[in-house]
């Protein structure tokens, strides 16, 4: 009984979406442009200040010197080695931490008894500053890879865990009732309603977990490593070469940003359905 005119009206209402996509890219480009004005000015000022001797070169070398340092590391082949070692540690720690958080978080979020049993314990452990684990992990596992990866995993675990539990417990009761109308089993209910509904906060947890992962890889590599970007920091400090230290800091920043961008992209891809500010239009 819907008239043709009505159909046409609904169809028209939904169409302006396409227009805004190209506009969005334009705005994104403009955003990057505006956002990079200040950093570029600072870089130029820094370069000039370092060249004219306004800044002591043995404390803060010019940006070009730092860039040269990175290029020379690239040329002698050590750059790739350091980056891949650090990336592997972060990745393994992140995977283990996230995996554990998903399993435990899902159980705690879903079953009230598990929550009463486990959550107080995890909340207590969470209040230990994660760096306090360093000596214990070294005692237990030595200064090799296991202690480093464990430390990163511990750091990643908590934000992911907390967000999963909150996400699952925050699922709208009204949507769960929809599942119950269709007689879904608990497994189906989890898979088809609870997990998708908790996905946004899970991804938020992963992003803050990844941030902590990068923080802890620095700590882990400072405590004793023979390779990796954190090791470069130590080398730079011990050999009085601030260019190495700053180059390493710069690489941390770039890698952290790239890995976060990957997660952000995943977030955007999988949360297109969300009715949020960024999805407007």
């Amino acid at each position: 009984m819907i008239s043709e005119t009505h159909k046409w009206k609904v169809a028209q209402r939904a169409s302006p979406q396409k227009l805004s996509t190209s506009k969005g890219i334009f705005q994104l480009g403009r955003g990057i442009l505006i956002g990079s004005i200040l950093p570029i000015i600072l870089l130029i000022a820094w370069e000039i200040a370092a060249r004219t001797g306004l800044l002591a070169a043995h404390l803060l070398p010019a940006p070009t010197i730092i860039l040269e340092k990175i290029i020379s590391m690239y040329q002698d082949g050590s750059l790739f080695g350091h980056i891949s070692v650090t990336l592997t540690r972060v990745f393994l720690g992140f995977a283990i931490g996230t995996g554990a958080a998903v399993v435990i978080g899902a159980i705690v979020g879903y079953a009230k008894t598990a929550e009463r049993l486990l959550d107080p314990l995890f909340q207590a452990i969470r209040s230990i500053p994660s760096l306090a684990w360093v000596p214990l992990f070294i005692l237990w596992m030595g200064i090799g890879e296991p202690s480093k990866i464990s430390l990163i995993a511990v750091g990643v675990f908590f934000p992911v865990y907390l967000n999963i539990v909150a996400g699952i417990q925050g699922v709208d009761r009204k949507l769960i009732e929809v599942g119950r109308i269709y007689h879904l089993t608990p497994y189906q209910l989890t898979k088809r309603i609870i997990l998708p509904a908790a996905l946004p906060s899970f991804i938020t947890g992963m992003r803050s977990g990844l941030g902590l992962g990068w923080m802890f890889v620095v700590a882990a590599e400072l405590m004793g490593a023979s390779e990796g970007l954190g090791y470069l920091l130590v080398v730079g400090q011990n050999t009085y070469s601030p260019d190495t230290v700053i180059a390493s800091i710069l690489l941390f920043a770039v890698l952290g940003k790239i890995t976060d961008a990957v997660l952000k992209w995943v977030e955007h891809r999988s949360l297109k359905w969300q009715d949020s500010m960024t999805n407007q239009g």
């Binding site: 009204k174 109308i181 007689h183």
Partner: peptide, 18 residues
């Protein structure tokens, strides 16, 4: 049979990710 009852709520209650 099992699926004999359909229900519509005051709100659409659509699953936003589908």
């Amino acid at each position: 049979s099992n699926n004999q009852i359909g229900m519509m709520f005051q709100e659409p209650r659509l699953l936003p990710w589908l």
